[in-house]
């Protein structure tokens, strides 16, 4: 995924994101940090195609998604799993049906999704809550259902907005382990978090920091073109 001078403005207000440029390589693990109101969720919305930018270029899986006709967007969205900050579980569906939703949208037959959904629920420790509605689940349980729903379709990219905000440290460690495993299988991960401990748990993860809608880059590896690449090119010369 490539962002090039991307700006986002809601209505006629000030820009929420300004001149955002970076490249996410396939199979990378990225943390997105920044203070509240910095624009993390807005940036994630652009990444998971819930929003089009006001200006700039976004390329995803090799294609320009800014000018792409909306009829083509569903095919791209199916390759992206999303863990929303507010979970956005469908309140009248059971935990099982919520987790099964991406598979049903993708056209998987009911008989073929029973086993993977039950395995996923078991993995996040909610086997016995499969038939529970979101309203009867705790915040942590809802978050785990949201994560299970996001990863059930083995997406090429997983975008998670504060995925460990409502779970205990043990569950947070398990979820991070799941993300790590998915990443090792080739899934690109973008995780927005305030959790400083999380940032240190994945050694190969790269970090980008947003502040007041601008991308500040403490490591210098995420800017587009990447400084690391520039540095490599410089040293080669």
């Amino acid at each position: 995924m490539q962002f090039d001078n991307v700006g986002l403005r809601y209505g006629t207000g000030a820009e929420t994101l300004s001149d955002v440029s970076f490249t996410l390589r396939a199979g990378g693990f990225y943390f997105l940090t920044g203070p509240s109101g910095a624009g993390k969720t807005s940036l994630l919305k652009l990444i998971y195609l819930a929003q089009r930018p006001s200006r700039g270029l976004i390329r995803l899986f090799g294609e320009d998604v800014v000018t792409m006709p909306r009829e083509r967007l569903p095919g791209f969205r199916r390759r992206i799993g999303v863990v929303f900050q507010d979970f956005r579980l469908v309140r009248h569906l059971s935990a099982f049906d919520n987790v099964a939703l991406p598979l049903r949208v993708a056209g998987v037959e009911d008989r073929d999704l029973q086993q993977p959904v039950r395995e996923m629920l078991a993995w996040v420790g909610l086997s016995d809550r499969a038939s529970a509605r979101p309203a009867t689940l705790s915040g942590g349980e809802q978050q785990r259902v949201a994560i299970a729903r996001a990863v059930i379709g083995r997406p090429d990219m997983l975008v998670a907005d504060e995925p460990t905000g409502n779970v205990d440290p043990e569950m947070a460690a398990r979820l991070l382990h799941l993300f790590d495993a998915l990443n090792k299988l080739g899934t690109t991960l973008v995780v927005a978090t305030h959790d400083i401990h999380l940032l240190t748990r994945i050694g190969r993860a790269e970090m980008m920091r947003l502040d007041r809608g601008m991308l500040s880059d403490p490591t210098g590896i995420l800017r587009y073109p990447p400084r690391r690449a520039e540095a490599a090119a410089d040293s080669a010369q």
Partner: peptide, 16 residues
Amino acid sequence: RGTIEVMHLMGATDVQ
């Protein structure tokens, strides 16, 4: 609307 938005973001088409 909430359900529809979630379905859209999971890749549901308008026809679905």
